[in-house]
Simulated assay, not measured.
Amino acid sequence: MADRVDDLGRLRIACELAALCPPSETAFSVGAVIVGTDGRELARGYSRENDPHDHAEESALAKTAADLTGTTIYSSLEPCAERRSRPLTCSELILRAGIARVVFAWREPSLFVEGEGLERLRAAGVEVVELPALADLARAPNAHLLG
């Protein structure tokens, strides 16, 4: 498993990546980092990085051909469980990739869809860790959406 001692550090990187997202009035700005079982970073991504519909987890997953079985993904926002722009949600992509652990900072508010990623991932046997100490950092690039 990835070095759990550095969960806050890895999650902080994901939260900082969210600040790179092109602004949107219809989607959250999110960052994601995938870490291998040996603790090495495998990929990182952020929302709308290459396409207006890209989610952060999706962007990071697209950058690696590594076997992701047992890895950890850090995401500034709870991975989505409902999506209108693509056929697969981030939760489904994470499950299909074999990622064993998800660490996130901020639960998805019901602004666009209902946030149920945590529940779906846990129900599928994924270890899900919420670190709300970084929620303010995750919310910052989304302040324009939150009023």
Rank of each mutant, 00 (worst) to 15 (best):
S29L: 08
A65V: 15
T72S: 08
E49F: 03
E25W: 14
C15I: 08
A105C: 10
G70S: 06
S76D: 00
P109N: 00
A27S: 12
D6F: 15
A105F: 13
G98R: 00
A56Y: 00
L8I: 12
I94V: 11
E119G: 05
I73N: 07
E116H: 06
G31W: 01
R107C: 13
Y46G: 04
C15R: 04
G70W: 09
A138G: 03
E108A: 05
V5M: 15
S91A: 15
I34F: 08
G117A: 05
G9S: 14
I34R: 05
A81I: 09
R48S: 09
V35K: 12
V128I: 12
V5D: 15
R101C: 15
R10P: 04
A66H: 13
C15D: 01
G39M: 13
I34L: 15
E49N: 07
V126Q: 06
V113M: 10
P22G: 09
C90Q: 11
A135S: 09
C80F: 07
D7N: 14
P141Y: 05
V102T: 07
I99A: 06
I94K: 00
T26N: 13
G147P: 15
E25K: 15
Y74G: 05
V5Y: 15
P109W: 04
A100W: 07
L131V: 11
S76F: 02
F112D: 00
L77A: 09
A105Y: 06
R107I: 14
W106T: 03
G39P: 08
A56Q: 02
A18N: 01
V126M: 08
V129H: 08
I13G: 13
A43L: 09
G31Q: 01
E127C: 07
G117L: 06
A143Y: 10
A19H: 15
L95Y: 09
Y74D: 02
P132C: 06
R44T: 01
S85H: 13
Y46S: 03
S29Q: 06
Y46A: 02
R84P: 05
G125N: 03
S59Y: 01
I73H: 04
S91Q: 08
D51M: 12
F112P: 00
G39N: 14
A143G: 10
A140Y: 00
A133V: 11
G31D: 02
L146R: 10
T89V: 08
A124V: 04
C90K: 01
G9C: 07
A66T: 11
F104N: 07
A56F: 00
A18P: 03
Y46E: 03
A133W: 10
P87C: 02
N50L: 14
T71D: 02
I99H: 09
A62F: 05
T89W: 06
T72C: 06
I34W: 11
L95E: 11
A27V: 02
I73F: 09
H55R: 13
C80Y: 07
W106L: 12
A62E: 11
A123Q: 12
V33D: 04
Y46K: 02
E58K: 02
F28S: 01
E16R: 14
E116C: 08
L20W: 08
N142K: 08
K63G: 08
H144Q: 10
C21W: 09
R139W: 01
R12H: 04
R96C: 15
R83P: 11
R84T: 11
E119V: 07
A124L: 03
G115C: 07
I34S: 07
D38W: 14
